[in-house]
């Protein structure tokens, strides 16, 4: 399976929740928490459900944290994807 990286995550964020006009998602955002990126818990929930569906994985509810970062979420996603493979 092709790895799911920051580009893929940003694509899903944009499509499922939109993006804050004042924030550049193309920049170095890996270690910025989701709340600072303009996403609330529902936006993150919608995004993660989308990723789970597309990759055929299941993440724990703890993965949905607005104080978490894209890097931590991507680690979770790829760990789950490796287990599912």
């Amino acid at each position: 399976m092709a790895s799911f990286g920051i580009k893929e995550l940003v694509d899903v964020l944009r499509e499922s929740a939109g993006e804050d006009e004042d924030i550049n998602l193309e920049g170095d955002i890996l270690d910025i928490d989701f709340e600072s990126l303009g996403y609330d818990s529902l936006a993150l929930f919608n995004t993660i459900r989308w990723v789970e569906r597309d990759l055929g994985i299941a993440l724990s509810d703890e993965a949905i944290s607005v104080t978490g970062t894209p890097r931590a979420l991507l680690d979770e996603i790829n760990r789950a994807a490796a287990q599912a493979a």
Partner: peptide
């Protein structure tokens, strides 16, 4: 509208 509001 802001992009964040469109999907919701």
């Amino acid at each position: 509208l802001p992009s964040r509001l469109v999907p919701q």
